[in-house]
């Protein structure tokens, strides 16, 4: 029973582990692109958390149809929220990559310690 309960939180385990993988990459990698990849993984983990919590057991897509009564619907709001957050994540990533391109133009490298040495 205990084990089943733990497995029941499967999505949340994945969320926590992905979050930590992302954070680890951001902290430990010296390559700026790898840092950004880590940041993306980190953000995706949060998307998963939002998507998980809107699921209602037995729920279906929240579309009201004529003739269907007593149907359980999933909560659509977190999905809408996370759509916004995904857009934010994409633009952050794009801006981050643009900055990395500029760094490469000005410094000729994207390794963190080489940049620190250059100044």
């Amino acid at each position: 029973m205990k084990l089943l309960e733990l497995l029941g939180y499967y999505n949340y385990w994945v969320f926590a582990i992905t979050l930590m993988i992302g954070l680890y990459a951001v902290i430990s990698k010296a390559n700026l692109i790898k840092k950004l990849i880590g940041l993306s993984i980190f953000q995706s983990a949060v998307f998963l958390m939002y998507i998980t919590m809107d699921k209602v057991e037995g729920g279906t897509a929240p579309i009201i149809q004529a003739g269907v009564e007593g149907q359980i619907y999933s909560n659509p709001l977190p999905q809408v929220l996370i759509l916004t957050a995904i857009v934010v994540g994409v633009s952050t990533l794009a801006l981050g990559l643009a900055i990395v391109v500029r760094i490469n133009e000005r410094y000729g490298t994207i390794e963190e310690h080489e940049i620190l040495d250059a100044d």
Binding site: F42, G96, I99
Partner: peptide, 19 residues
């Protein structure tokens, strides 16, 4: 040009904060 690494650091930390 030193603004670029500075802003990269800000971007990483700012995004982690927001997340």
């Amino acid at each position: 040009r030193r603004a670029l690494p500075a802003v990269f650091k800000y971007l990483i930390m700012g995004t982690i904060g927001a997340t």
